[in-house]
Amino acid sequence: MSTQPAIRVTGLHKSYGDFEAVRGIDFEVAQGEVFGLLGPNGAGKTTTVEILEGLRSRTSGQVSVLGYDPANDTMAVKDRIGVSLQATNLPEKMKVLEAAELFAAFYSRATDITSLLKRLQLWEKRGAFYSTLSGGQKQRLALALAMINEPQVVFLDEPTTGLDPQVRLEIHSLIEELRDQKRTILLTTHYIEEAERLCHRVAIVDEGKVIAIGTPRELQQKILGHSRVEICTLSPMPPDLPRDWPAEFPIHFSDDRKKLTVPAPKPARAVVDLVKWLDAAGAELDDLHIKRPTLEDVFIELTGKSLRD
C-alpha cells in the first residue's frame, strides 16, 4: 500500500463572481482514513467536496484525488470514487434495482448488486418505485449507489441531515462498516456527534477556510483541555467556597445560587469535593453532570459562533 495521500488539497479557492465561497483550503486525507469536514451551512464544505468530485470547477489551487486532478482527468476520478450528494433525486418511477443496475453500468468495475442491496436492507424493496421510499430508504439507496463501483474513495455530503435519530444511527453504523473495510471516506456534516463518532480526523471549516484540523480528541484538548462540572441544588448553596478550593478553577454560581459550574481537569475528584461540601452545608442535590468539551465548544471558542445557528 502506497503512502500517497488519497486526497490532497492545496490552496483551494472558489469564487462565484464577487462571492468567495472557498478562500484557501488545505488538507490531506490518508488512504483508509475517515476525514470529516465540520462546519455550519454556507461554510464552503459542499463546494469543496463538489470540486473534489469533479462536479464543479475551482478558481485556483491544486487538487489531487487518487493521484488525478478532477479538473483534467475528470472521468478517471469519477470512475474511481463513490459519491452521496447532499440531495439525491432520482426519477419517481425508477425502481430500486433498476437504479442500481443503471449506475453499475456507468463504471468500469461494479460490485455484486444483490449483496450490496441486502447489506443495506434494500433487497426487499428492490421492486419499489423511488417515490415510495421513506427518507431513510432513499438515503440508504444513495449510499448503495455511492458504493456501486467499489470505490477507493467515498464522498458523503451530509449523509444524515434531515433524518430521524434512529435512521441516523443506522446510517452511522453503515458508515462504520465502510470504515472497517478500510475505505477512504470524506464526510461533511454539521452534526458534532457524527464527526466525533465516525471520523479519524476532522477539519473545522467556517466561511471558506479551515480554522482547525486534527483528531477530535486533539482538537478538544488543544483548545480547551478541560471538562466542566455542573451541579444543581434545590435550595441555595452556601455563600462561601469549599475549603482550599484552588483559585485557578473559579466556580461560577448562578444568580439564585442553585447552580454552579466549574472547570475541572480532574472532574471526578472535583465532584467528590464539591458534593462533600454541599452535603456538609445541608444543601439538597438536584442534578449533577460532568461535561466533556465537545467540538461545539471548540467551534464556539474559535469562531465565537455556535455551530447550530
Binding site: 469533479g54 439525491t88 433525486n89 426519477p91
Partner: peptide, 16 residues
C-alpha cells in the same frame, strides 16, 4: 424536468 429536479445532477457524478 429532470434537470430542474436535480436528477441529472446525480448522473453528472458518474463517469458518463
Amino acid at each position: 424536468v429532470e434537470r430542474e429536479s436535480g436528477i441529472l445532477r446525480r448522473f453528472k457524478v458518474a463517469p458518463i
